[in-house]
Write a protein that binds this DNA or RNA. Structure first.
Length: 638
RNA sequence: GCCGAUGUGGCUCAGGGGUAGAGCAGCUCACUCGUAAUGAGCAGGUCGCCGGUUCGAAUCCGGCCAUCGGCUCCA
């Protein structure tokens, strides 16, 4: 009997008998690892624990802490779901059932319409299958055998999947008890390995994601190896609900969405303060970075949109109107207006780069079902800019934008990652221009030493782009900033500059946004801070709470002292107990509550209560004013 | 747009074929209070909209609108 050499993750090499399984390797390494092992890999190929190792190989063991382990765990969970559904609802056809970010789903085609009550029954059935601890077995089959098998079972979707597998694919089926599914695997060794499972929700989903296909019923679930981990996950979901900007926006009186304007947000007085602070910050930062602000019209005629190409590439998202029998469109983007501004003058190469910035209100028709608070709306303000430059300036300008984005996000305490998207289908321009543009973006990222993820085919129709995805405090990511290189529009609008040689040349242009959409950014900020905005953004920065009527005069003095320094301050002189006023101030997440009674009035002091931190004790009024002024000026996070 | 669910006073929600109910918020009065809700009283709704069934509809049925969870798309 011969032995094999197994190279472990830490580089150590150990010898095992030929045919040793991955699970047996785990046992040999540590009892704890063996207990937690969910899957493994042999020479980088993810496999089930029961897979024998038949060559010298690098072997890794995966637990739930590894993405590979989680995926196998959730994928097996989805099979469990499918088995339970087919037991309870015979005749249900299976779609696909993959693991996803936080769990898994399975798509079903059934005459029965699943209800939330069904989920409880399905969960129960799943628990029974876990209890039975059915071994999960892999079998490789020929294409013909797979097609015959699923045709006989009436699993039409599976038949379609098998037919579409590539010529050389290994076709495998996994079984647990009487349930057999087409699946590449790998899976857990048995159904008993799954511990904490929960079905989360129901949704419709098109077969293969295309609205041309039948809509199937999707059941979402999640699973964890321990109940405590499941509970933590559910708690995170609760936390996200608590932070929901739609709820907080209404409670705090920031913004609202009404039936009269679906997807068109209303900003209330307090929301406008927040918004204006963001715009103030934006204007200061952009002026400093050498931008000039412009404003272009919301409605422009159809021929402009034909010239820009939007009419042919973006029409289904555009609102149109008629004026004096001529066709007009409401702008879905700001760029064509900006092109017209550039064309107002003859430009010398000495003026470039020319950075035109615009807080531009754009309207886009989004599907009614896609609308979501401020995150997905039908009108929003882009903090747009178009930079016109010499080809030799591309790299440096992109670096400038990367720096600006970094300055913005770090001001709010966001971390972020970067993605580079390349040419999509249905795009304009030559291959050569696309290649040049993509290379320029890559060069800038490399020069800055920024790590990025590549998204082939995900660019805009006019050029490749760099996207900035920021991460909020719950670990969710949001695409905000973007830099898009555009060789098309300068061509279409025949933009020129006069070069050193006295001849006309074509400038290069980039579109870029930092916030992305101010509306969405406000939504993200609301959730990130759970409505407790840092003082510089808070609609009300401090509220003065006199304890009784006789402290009112001093409270007015305190309020006026803060207001005199430009601070946003309110006085709560209602005839209520101080406890009541404190509670209300807390509910409204006001950064500072200043309680004033006899002691404070006597010493020209304030008793400071800071949101989230509680009673801070008394402080001289002037000292507090200075402190808050400084906190606001520094844009401190808390 | 598609699938499913939901729509009752400013907010959160109960009820449910015989012309509406609570708590909070609001207003009035009393209490003058030291770090997260003082008490009492008053006022407030054509039950999303339109149609149908019925002696009678907020309730049952149909259509539409909006919202929520997804699919698709995207800032």
């Amino acid at each position: 009997m011969s032995n094999i050499q197994v190279t472990l993750k830490d580089g150590a090499v150990r010898e095992f008998p030929l045919g040793t399984t991955v699970a047996e390797v785990a046992i040999a390494l540590s009892r704890k690892l063996a207990q937690n092992a969910l899957a493994g890999s042999i020479n980088g190929r993810v496999v089930g624990l029961n897979t024998p190792i038949d060559v010298d190989a690098a072997v890794e063991i995966y637990t739930f802490d590894d993405p590979e382990g989680r995926e196998v765990y959730r994928h097996s969970s989805s099979h469990l779901l499918a088995q339970a559904v087919q037991r309870l609802f015979p005749g249900t056809q299976l779609g696909i059932g993959p693991a996803i970010q936080d769990g898994f789903y399975y798509d079903f085609d059934s005459d029965h319409v699943f209800t939330p009550e069904d989920l409880a029954a399905i969960e129960k059935e799943m628990a029974a299958i876990v209890q039975a601890d059915l071994p999960i077995e892999r079998r490789e089959v020929s294409r013909e055998e797979a097609i015959r098998f699923f045709t006989e079972k009436g699993e039409n979707y599976k038949v379609e999947l098998v037919r579409d597998l590539p010529e050389d694919a290994v076709i495998s089926m996994y079984s647990q008890g009487d349930f057999i599914d087409l699946c590449a695997g790998p899976h857990l060794p048995s159904t008993g390995a799954m511990k904490a499972l929960k079905l989360m929700s129901l949704a419709g989903a098109y077969w293969r994601g295309s609205e041309k296909n039948k809509m199937l019923q999707r059941i979402y679930g999640t699973s964890f190896p321990k109940k405590t981990l499941l509970d933590e996950h559910l708690h995170r979901i609760e936390e996200a609900k608590r932070r929901d900007h739609r709820k907080l926006g209404q409670e705090l009186g920031l913004y609202t969405l009404l039936e009269e304007g679906p997807g068109f947000p209303f900003f209330l007085p307090k929301g406008m303060i927040l918004r204006n602070e963001l715009e103030k910050f934006w204007r200061q930062a952009h002026e400093k970075a050498g931008y000039q602000e412009i404003r272009t019209p919301v409605i422009l005629n159809q021929s402009l949109w034909e010239r820009s190409g939007h009419w042919f590439h973006y029409k289904e998202n555009m609102y149109t109107t008629q004026i004096d029998e001529a066709e007009y469109a409401i702008k879905p983007m700001n760029c064509p207006g900006s092109m017209l501004v550039y064309r107002q003058d003859i430009h010398s190469y000495r003026e470039l780069p020319l950075r035109l910035a615009e807080l531009g209100l754009v309207h886009r028709h989004e599907l009614s079902g896609a609308l979501h608070g401020l995150m997905r709306v039908r009108c929003f303000t882009q903090d747009d800019s178009h930079i016109f430059m010499l080809p030799s300036q591309i790299k440096e300008e992109i670096i400038g934008v990367i720096d600006l984005v970094d300055h913005f996000y770090s001001t709010f305490g966001f971390s972020y990652h970067v993605e580079l998207s390349t040419r999509p289908e249905n795009s304009m321009g030559s291959d050569e221009a696309w290649e040049k543009a993509t290379e320029a973006l890559e060069a800038a990222l490399q020069a800055k030493g920024v790590a990025y993820k590549l998204n082939p085919g995900d660019g805009a129709f006019y050029g490749p782009k760099i996207d900035f995805h920021l991460k909020d405090c719950l670990g969710r990511t949001w695409q905000c900033g973007t830099i898009q290189l555009d060789f098309q529009l300068p061509e279409k609008f025949d933009l020129t500059y006069v070069g050193e040689d006295g001849q006309k040349h074509r400038p290069v242009m980039i579109h870029r946004v930092v916030f992305g959409s101010i509306e969405r950014f406000i939504g993200i900020l609301t959730e990130h801070f759970a409505g407790a905005f840092p003082a510089w953004l808070a609609p009300v920065q401090a509220r003065v709470l006199p304890i009784t009527d006789r402290h009112r005069d001093y409270a007015v003095e305190v309020r006026d002292a803060l207001a005199a320094k430009g601070l946003r301050v309110e006085l709560d002189d209602r005839n209520e107990k101080v406890n009541y006023k404190i509670r209300e101030g807390g509910v409204q997440k006001i950064p500072y509550l200043l309680i004033v009674g006899d002691k404070e009035a006597e010493n020209r002091a304030v008793a400071v209560r800071k949101f989230g931190a509680g009673d801070q004790g008394a402080m001289a009024l002037d000292a507090f004013v200075d402190k808050l002024v400084q906190e606001v000026a520094e844009k401190a996070h808390s």
